[in-house]
Design a protein around this nucleic acid. Structure first.
Lengths: 154, 154
DNA sequence: TATTGTTATACTCTATAACTATA
DNA sequence: TATAGTTATAGAGTATAACAATA
């Protein structure tokens, strides 16, 4: 604990990063007619292809009820449809519309652009230093969350 | 744009950091009987001392109506009280209860502990490298948000 | 019996607009 | 006339519990 203030200041900067990054992404999602939660669902759908709501609930770590609401919203705004599941008449397959697929790919492209904006002009040394530290922080944080999950099993 | 994939991977890690940090902080807030938004208000109150709701609305960048709701919640759960403003009978001074002040200080202490957890065991070199990169990223992001704010003036 | 998704209900955060009391 | 805060209203995200249809 040699420089507690510097550590606290660094955390403040990380928290500013969190806030600003959220603000930036939310702004561009709003332009596309999406909310953060709905965009997460779109993202999951992009990576998994047509999925049951149950699968999406697990992917997003939210309740089945919540997925019903998110899909309702995305259906109303024309991003996805509910298609019958071929083998299971209880289930539906949430599927992109043409527009939904187009917007999802745009989200992906926007993500890459953001990465270039943030890191593209950094020197290799600077970038490497940042990534190394980031890795350490993430490892510590993952371990902490895991330990905490052990203590209070869901 | 020499290593676009590495940049995208780094952004993925930053986003994981955002998610994990939120999860970790929310967990400990829940233990204290607080939500994220209410904790932000507590934080503002800790730094400003007894404040009018108007001042809190500006500090938190939310609507006056929203502050009414947040303060309602914090009053119900015993963290703050509404005291009459000495000079202006329209206004109230949102003020910590003893318990509220205690919890707010615990939040502050928890923040410092988190900083130590994340950075305390990093080598000086590693820490310096991370902070340098973080500074660059923040500068870029601030500039971007400002430019965006220019384009669509609120 | 177990699973998928919906209805019913409730709480939190957020916003705008109209209104009350005071300045 | 302007300001501080509340009421009225609305929409989004979140949860649990009860239920229908299907497996």
């Amino acid at each position: 604990m040699r420089h507690p203030t510097r550590h606290a200041d660094a955390l403040d900067q990380v928290l500013e990063l969190v806030v600003s990054l959220n603000a930036d992404m939310e702004q561009s999602l709003t332009r596309d007619g999406l909310t953060t939660s709905r965009a997460h669902l779109m993202w999951a759908l992009l990576h998994r292809g047509p999925s049951t709501q149950r699968a999406l609930a697990e992917a997003l770590q939210v309740s089945a009820r919540n997925v019903t609401g998110l899909v309702d919203g995305l259906v109303d705004t024309g991003f996805v449809t509910r298609e019958p599941h071929p083998d299971d008449r209880r289930a539906t397959l949430v599927t992109f519309t043409r527009r939904g697929a187009r917007v999802a790919k745009r989200l992906q492209a926007g993500q890459r652009q953001l990465a270039e904006l943030l890191f593209g002009r950094m020197s290799d040394r600077r970038f490497a230093g940042f990534v190394a530290g980031l890795g350490d922080v993430l490892t510590t944080l993952r371990r902490e969350l895991e330990a905490d999950a052990q203590k209070r099993p869901s």
